[in-house]
Design a protein around this nucleic acid. Sequence first.
DNA 1: CTGTTAGCGCTTTCAC
DNA 2: GTGAAAGCGCTAACAG
Lengths: 331, 331
Amino acid sequence: MSKNKVNIYDVAEKAGVGIGTVSRVLNNSDKVKDDTRKKVLEVMKELNYRPNKLAQNLARQKANAVAVIVPSFIDHFFVEVLKGIQDALEEENIDLILHKIDLNENRMKKIMDIVHSRKVDGIAALTMDISDTEDQELKDSGIPVVLADEFSADFHSIYFDDLKGAEMAVDYLAALDHSRIAFVNGDINSLHGQKRLEGVKKSFKKNNIIIDQKLIKDGDFYVEDGYQSMQEIFELPQAKWPTAVFAASDNQAIGVLQAVEEKGLKVPADIAVIGYDNIELAKYLKLTTIWQPMYQLGYLTIEVLLKAINGELKDIYHKELELKLVKRETA
Amino acid sequence: MSKNKVNIYDVAEKAGVGIGTVSRVLNNSDKVKDDTRKKVLEVMKELNYRPNKLAQNLARQKANAVAVIVPSFIDHFFVEVLKGIQDALEEENIDLILHKIDLNENRMKKIMDIVHSRKVDGIAALTMDISDTEDQELKDSGIPVVLADEFSADFHSIYFDDLKGAEMAVDYLAALDHSRIAFVNGDINSLHGQKRLEGVKKSFKKNNIIIDQKLIKDGDFYVEDGYQSMQEIFELPQAKWPTAVFAASDNQAIGVLQAVEEKGLKVPADIAVIGYDNIELAKYLKLTTIWQPMYQLGYLTIEVLLKAINGELKDIYHKELELKLVKRETA
DNA sequence: CTGTTAGCGCTTTCAC
DNA sequence: GTGAAAGCGCTAACAG
């Protein structure tokens, strides 16, 4: 029977000290005589004592955990970010409570539930655009929040410049002498989708490319959406087909690649393809893409969140992470 | 200033009742007069009161959370499983605390730390083979544990039959008249690797295929390992090349596909490829593979864990999930 | 340096 | 039905 029911009183009694002293050695207080510390430590080991974190947390009014909120669809993008998050958290020995929030449900209510539960000291939200009307309640709660992959004037945020990224992609295609360029966009209702579209248009204008609305598709950021969009493009008269396509995510680029291949066309000879994200797989697919440093995003998000929790941040922290073009073989 | 500092006493006072009553309505106790309940509920809303879960948990001696332990490498396999886990958990409103554990570190110590922290009511461990010598301590702790994708006589476990799966894959290749078959295995030190190798050998024997050790590779379950293994195979004299390869994971199959393609060879005409897992991507790569129902694995794991936590499980639960061959175009 | 005491915010008997 | 009081296991003053 080693059902660990031993608590601080048991240790104190057996060591012949008060519980205050036990608590002190637990918290590495320097004001404990070496002898007593040693004695207490011994008893702890003997009894196989471990502090009850639930009790510690309640007494300290600190949860020693953060919530990470992800959209319901965990895809490659989030996996990369999560890795960064986990690594950053592990170094600090802080628990990661994973919550997923569907786009269609009452997000702010769920978030506020998390806040009020007191089970976390802070929140990292991935790709959650919080509308201005919603955010007041969250702001008022005073809980540290950092937005990853989303900008907000009201919260710490770490983000990429979607416009710039899209522009970069199309510029590259244009430099390769493509003038019939399709854009397979993701969710046009998201800020990401809108900004990327802006970037595409900006580049088109700059490079004197005439916009063909039939070559601009939107859907979502998944593989099937890319596949679907490309299928639709192939329904156009062949003369209208693009010589290059920019997909708003690597996932979609994979779908595009599939569709192109099924058509018996060659990449990049017949149709060049450039993606967005640089997920791990992109390397193996030899996909040219825009690299969003996702791991770094996750890691930095936590670093900032922990600083916020520790009150080390006076102002709202805003940071744009640099995008990079990764040239491989599809464009 | 809405910094939610309101507690059960505030509510009790304002409602003109004792804290016991407030607690009762909080817990939907039936022995509260409708009038008082209504009154208390009103005050709660008015004060925007939410129970402090930290305190609830301490008083109840229950964390309302489970730990999910994953290996440090979160790949597509785990993402699928995680989805199932999350869905199952969400229905029960239980928190998911994600821990990663590296293979090389002191796993049991980390696990026992989690156990003793009291922050979780149970543990779901993915792909963790717990050695017999280690498991005693965990068993003694009495905390509910369920192993996913790993069998153990001592713990609830939900698993696949690796031997059968590998056999199935090679049988299929043999039925396609392949007799020079390479096996690109994963970690040979893992039970999975060993069992799959057994399955391959069993099928070889059954189908009168002579084992060529040069065509049996091992490494790890990642893309690069598959790529690497295939490269090594291509270093053999061309006459020795296989006409088909079975990869122990879809990740590796992707690597194999790459290597084959770079060689200018056609799949499946020159070399057929079959994978293992059926990750989401497999569909788009048209990869023939052995389907391990990963989502179901995650979902069931949580269902079992919650039952164990609620004391609804008398015996150790063991369940083998069925594998299935998914025929697509690479073999 | 160390013991004692009062919380942390809730649940849960135990009386009335 | 409901209030009062005693924990849950720990931290953090407060004395000495």
